[in-house]
């Protein structure tokens, strides 16, 4: 394997994956390779959270140490600073094609929830959904990391992405349990829940009329526990915010600083988190309970999701 000597990631001695994780990994890798083979302008959303970080790791698995498409991060400018540090560190270490997008107008005009101008839902729609939509379709500037100059610069590529790989899991909340692995969104980013394409025998809808774009969900069958188990077996680096660093709290789900609160938990390591999830200690705490916008959306996230929230 001398031909791969320089691929970042290093050699790893590891235990073989348990059968259930191997099965999930196989399906996810297959889906990602299908996406890469079928979409000319593919990208992957990387929220810096645990799910999309597992997704990034799976991409490196699928493509043997490479990530042959850009990673897109929507930077609301209110993300917890450690998230951005982590993002840029691994962008450099793994040589990622990193792109971020932002709703500059809203930030400049101080039209945000932290500025007191609008409510949480409107803020999410503006800083996340709108920014995402315009970053994906290329109508707003994309900032791409230049590895030679070691800084972000405006990306010359304004082509719309026609395939977007996303880390949604079906156990997260109701609307996600009906997702397909390959889910079409029309020009208006609309999602028709009742009229979804069939998926069977590992055949997914990969033929699309011009103008539609597709969300690809390789993690659909994974649970929160599976994510942490996989992080453990594969030694995937995660943001330290997920762990208790001395004050008896940790983040279970990461978002914007003003709208995300940690949960009470003494879990300091990946093993502690797995134990915590298995023990049922968190059974009465929703995964996204620290995310205030869910509550303001009446639960379910369906209004936000129909609109293109991921």
């Amino acid at each position: 394997m001398s031909g791969a000597a320089a691929v970042p990631g290093g050699v790893m001695e590891r235990e073989p994956l348990p059968a259930h994780l191997k099965k999930l990994e196989n399906t996810s890798v297959h889906i990602m390779r299908e996406a890469y083979a079928n979409f000319s302008n593919l990208c992957m959303l990387w929220s810096i959270g645990k799910d999309s970080t597992v997704l990034l790791w799976l991409a490196r698995k699928a493509f043997f140490g490479h990530v042959p498409f850009p990673l897109v991060h929507i930077d609301t400018a209110y993300k917890i600073p450690e998230m951005i540090e982590y993002r840029d560190r691994f962008t450099r270490e793994w040589g990622l094609l990193m792109v971020y997008g932002q709703n500059r107008q809203a930030l400049d005009a101080k039209q945000t929830y932290p500025d007191g101008a609008i409510d949480r839902i409107a803020c999410c729609k503006s800083l996340k959904t709108q920014a995402l939509k315009h970053t994906l379709d290329g109508s707003w500037p994309r900032y791409r990391f230049n590895h030679e100059l070691d800084r972000y610069e405006v990306d010359a590529n304004k082509e719309p992405y026609n395939g977007v790989i996303v880390g949604a899991r079906s156990d997260e909340e109701g609307s996600r349990s009906k997702e397909r692995y390959f889910s079409a969104r029309d020009r208006g980013s609309n999602w028709d829940i009742a009229e979804q394409p069939p998926e069977f025998w590992s055949y997914y809808k990969t033929d699309f009329a011009p103008g539609t774009h597709v969300r690809v969900h390789p993690l659909l069958d994974w649970t929160e526990l599976n994510i942490w188990e996989y992080i453990k077996y594969e030694s995937i680096p995660t943001v330290p915010l997920y762990y208790d660093r001395g004050d008896g709290t940790r983040f279970r789900s990461l978002g914007c600083e003003p709208c995300t609160t940690p949960i009470e938990s003494p879990a300091r390591t990946v093993d502690d988190i797995i134990e915590e999830l298995r023990s049922g200690r968190l059974k009465n705490v929703a995964e996204r309970s620290g995310r205030a916008q869910d509550k303001d959306d009446g639960g379910g996230l369906e209004t936000l999701r129909r609109d293109g929230y991921m």
Partner: peptide
Amino acid sequence: MTGTLGES
């Protein structure tokens, strides 16, 4: 949601 299969 917890969503582990180990729980209902």
